[in-house]
Simulated scan of single mutants.
Amino acid sequence: MLLRYVFFRVLMLIPVSISISVVIFAIVHLLPGDPVDNLLRVGSSPADRAALVAKYGLDQPLVVQYVRWVLAMFQGDFGEAIVLRRPVADLIRDNLPYSLRLGAAAFAFSSIVGIALGTVSATTRNAVVEQFVRGFILLGSTVPGFWLALLLILAFAVQLQWFPVSGAKGWDALVLPVLTIGFGGVALVARVTRVALMDARREDFVTLLHAKGLPANTILFRHLMPHAMLPVVTILALRIGWILGGAVTVEFVFGRPGLGSLLIRALGQRDYPVVQGCLLMLALAVMLGTLIGDVAQAAMDPRVREAKT
């Protein structure tokens, strides 16, 4: 039954991927500007411009350009960057490890700290601790990432000089970007964990476990946590795509290499193949996270896969 559910979920990704590719291609080509403008020298004639436009196939109808792009991707060819004049696949391959390293660290940070704070908030009887956690959740849910990044740079990189302002050399260059991306994730995971645990504590089986005299820690970690982890696992899986998407502005602010920096630079140059490749990778990350979350949810709760197959 689970394999059948996974098969249908993977099958559903095909029309979704096609729809996303159409949207990405349309949005990129509707942007004002032209990549040829970044290649022309001062004093170039209209004939020179027309030659470059024809060279890169930009004079073809958008439908033809889209079909050529999709057919090339099926062969593993993302095209060649118009301005950088390198294969897009090579550019993505060079920058993706930096984004994955940052995303993995931010994911681990937001998962561990978020679950811990949510558990403390749901189980503690200390009003001060609970108010602190709830205030942290509210703050993390409202603070913009780019604004927090600038504050962290000002405090810990410029004033205290504990961490580098920019770059990706050494583990210390990861600390501030991870805190920036993970701060909102911690708040989200903590909120979901807190609500899930509080709902689970109201179940009848918890009263029965207390009546049997089981220790509170045993009830929490052996019975409550597995019961409450279903929505938490779903949120964590969705965070996979959200983290990579959120890293776009963070990488740019901290001057880190990665898909985000590559995407912003390509947007400024209107380099269509690079922008399309980066956006497609980010969209695939979101779809992969959604798929992982749905499969994990179905594996943990048979009612989910029975309802959706």
Results as ranks from 00 to 15, higher is better:
residue 6 V to M: 12
residue 7 F to G: 12
residue 9 R to Y: 10
residue 15 P to S: 08
residue 17 S to Y: 04
residue 18 I to Q: 06
residue 18 I to S: 05
residue 19 S to G: 12
residue 19 S to N: 08
residue 23 V to G: 09
residue 25 F to N: 03
residue 30 L to V: 13
residue 31 L to E: 12
residue 33 G to E: 08
residue 34 D to W: 01
residue 35 P to H: 01
residue 36 V to I: 15
residue 38 N to Q: 10
residue 41 R to S: 14
residue 44 S to I: 05
residue 45 S to P: 05
residue 47 A to W: 02
residue 51 A to L: 11
residue 51 A to H: 06
residue 56 Y to W: 15
residue 63 V to I: 13
residue 67 V to W: 13
residue 70 V to P: 00
residue 70 V to A: 13
residue 70 V to E: 02
residue 72 A to G: 09
residue 72 A to L: 04
residue 74 F to V: 14
residue 75 Q to F: 05
residue 78 F to V: 05
residue 80 E to H: 14
residue 83 V to Y: 09
residue 84 L to I: 11
residue 84 L to H: 12
residue 85 R to H: 15
residue 88 V to L: 13
residue 90 D to M: 13
residue 90 D to E: 12
residue 94 D to E: 14
residue 95 N to R: 14
residue 95 N to L: 07
residue 97 P to M: 07
residue 98 Y to P: 00
residue 100 L to H: 06
residue 109 F to C: 10
residue 113 V to F: 10
residue 115 I to C: 02
residue 117 L to I: 04
residue 117 L to M: 13
residue 122 A to V: 00
residue 124 T to L: 04
residue 125 R to V: 10
residue 126 N to R: 15
residue 128 V to H: 10
residue 132 F to H: 01
residue 134 R to S: 05
residue 137 I to L: 01
residue 138 L to R: 08
residue 142 T to E: 04
residue 144 P to F: 05
residue 146 F to R: 03
residue 146 F to Y: 12
residue 146 F to M: 10
residue 151 L to V: 14
residue 153 I to M: 13
residue 156 F to G: 10
residue 156 F to Q: 09
residue 157 A to T: 11
residue 160 L to W: 10
residue 162 W to Q: 15
residue 163 F to R: 02
residue 164 P to M: 10
residue 165 V to P: 01
residue 168 A to E: 08
residue 170 G to H: 15
residue 171 W to D: 09
residue 175 V to K: 03
residue 175 V to E: 03
residue 176 L to F: 14
residue 180 T to Y: 11
residue 186 V to K: 01
residue 187 A to R: 00
residue 189 V to D: 03
residue 189 V to E: 03
residue 189 V to L: 07
residue 192 V to E: 01
residue 194 R to W: 01
residue 196 A to L: 02
residue 199 D to K: 08
residue 199 D to I: 02
residue 202 R to E: 15
residue 202 R to S: 12
residue 208 L to D: 10
residue 209 L to T: 08
residue 209 L to Y: 15
residue 214 L to M: 14
residue 214 L to W: 09
residue 215 P to H: 15
residue 215 P to V: 03
residue 217 N to C: 04
residue 222 R to C: 05
residue 225 M to H: 00
residue 226 P to K: 08
residue 226 P to G: 06
residue 233 V to N: 04
residue 235 I to W: 00
residue 236 L to Y: 00
residue 238 L to M: 13
residue 239 R to M: 10
residue 241 G to E: 01
residue 241 G to R: 01
residue 243 I to S: 06
residue 243 I to H: 07
residue 245 G to E: 06
residue 245 G to C: 11
residue 248 V to P: 05
residue 248 V to A: 06
residue 251 E to M: 04
residue 255 G to T: 07
residue 255 G to N: 12
residue 257 P to M: 07
residue 257 P to F: 09
residue 258 G to E: 03
residue 260 G to Y: 02
residue 262 L to V: 07
residue 264 I to F: 06
residue 266 A to P: 07
residue 267 L to K: 11
residue 269 Q to L: 14
residue 269 Q to G: 06
residue 270 R to H: 09
residue 271 D to W: 01
residue 276 Q to M: 12
residue 276 Q to D: 07
residue 279 L to V: 15
residue 285 A to G: 06
residue 285 A to T: 04
residue 289 G to N: 05
residue 289 G to Q: 02
residue 290 T to S: 12
residue 290 T to W: 09
residue 292 I to A: 13
residue 293 G to V: 08
residue 294 D to Q: 15
residue 300 M to R: 11
residue 302 P to T: 03
residue 304 V to Y: 05
residue 307 A to Q: 12
residue 308 K to E: 11
